[in-house]
Design a protein around this nucleic acid. Sequence first.
DNA 1: CCAAAAGTGTTAGTGATACACCCATGT
DNA 2: ACATGGGTGTATCACTAACACTTTTGG
Lengths: 227, 227
Amino acid sequence: MKSLKTLLEEQAYRPAPDERPSVTVDIVLFTISEGELKLLLIKRRDEPFKAMWAIPGGFVRKGETLDQAALRELREETNVSGVYLEQLYTFGDPERDPRTWVITVAYFALVNSVNLQIKAETDAIDASWHSINNLPTLAFDHRKIVDYAVWRLRNKLEYTTVGFQLLPEKFTLTELQRVYEIILDKTLDKRNFRKKILSLSILKELNETKMDGIHRPAKLYTFVEKL
Amino acid sequence: MKSLKTLLEEQAYRPAPDERPSVTVDIVLFTISEGELKLLLIKRRDEPFKAMWAIPGGFVRKGETLDQAALRELREETNVSGVYLEQLYTFGDPERDPRTWVITVAYFALVNSVNLQIKAETDAIDASWHSINNLPTLAFDHRKIVDYAVWRLRNKLEYTTVGFQLLPEKFTLTELQRVYEIILDKTLDKRNFRKKILSLSILKELNETKMDGIHRPAKLYTFVEKL
DNA sequence: CCAAAAGTGTTAGTGATACACCCATGT
DNA sequence: ACATGGGTGTATCACTAACACTTTTGG
């Protein structure tokens, strides 16, 4: 048994167990399909907000990092893996969960449409992709989280290379341009786009072309970090 | 007493109290004085890392938001108020506290040197300012947090107006330039700096000058959001 | 030879950088 | 009159934005 001294020190050191919040991770998982930016939503099975749409997430477990928790939840709830993951913001409004005190560390994640296929096969009923232009009402403060994630994605697209995470390993420049256009929600000039992307020296031109059949074959490129 | 059903539902819904982490906020508080970028450190009174330097922080309490917790801790531990505050990142490595499971939401904060004076008077022994070029060994993973905060501050300086938070309400362009130079750790061209800052239309020229005595008086400006 | 997407250069404008001298004040 | 920091303009360079035609393929 612990000594009184130890107990008092611990008391001073950290709050009593029932004065601690629960901590969750919630993930805004984006993909591009059918020419739209979409995100994955789960239909809740439990209270609160039972039967309402929510972004995937769950409690952080003892012994795991936050990133690990986010990846685990994605795998468990949606069978998606191989994603790009990045911490977004931590939401701690005491009212955000109507029942109890839950602080959530929000993430945003990106998958390409190939991995998306895998997902759609294995998990059909409770999880589905929704266009960001047509979202249902979301549980908790998830709408706020989603809006922030979209804002961050748009920003990061301009000064980082996250965009590549939404494409398969090999892609054409037109496909890449479409990713940018869909996320930024505006058309881009083909020549200027190519000039800018190629000037970054982060693409390797492959000796392959995409034969989509009817048109002129397009060169395939692959993403190479810091050439 | 709660029914069995309720208990089971809650069990499913959230982890048992002793399976929850503690959650803290930790704040990297910057100021500029003596021509250097400094941050506030506290000498720890308790284990773990007793007597070691750490950034101010403490447990989030039930009923308060994370921002509120950060402001409260700053007030309690350092008597500083009126700061610019911004959430930085959440650190959740299960090993980051050697004793127990503590997740911390890190913030960075900025105060101008006027408020700094107030602080130094009221709190002398346990808290002091340290140049980021000469930091002692820090408790926990605080060094990592500090490094990240410095990186973020440098970045944000380039595309936001956070720099003004480190100056009093009225300031000269040279003083503003010094803030940028100290944080970015490089000299800037006076004419180009003025041209750029003034082109942003976020400064109002006052009909006052700073009479520092011996030299030509400098015009005073004040910061106006979105003119 | 037609339809459709791939691919390619030049010009104009805007913002960033480099650089040197006169001005106003107190002593 | 001098020492010191305050204040100002111009030329070059790099990046962004606007814009239209030729090429390659399958049918």
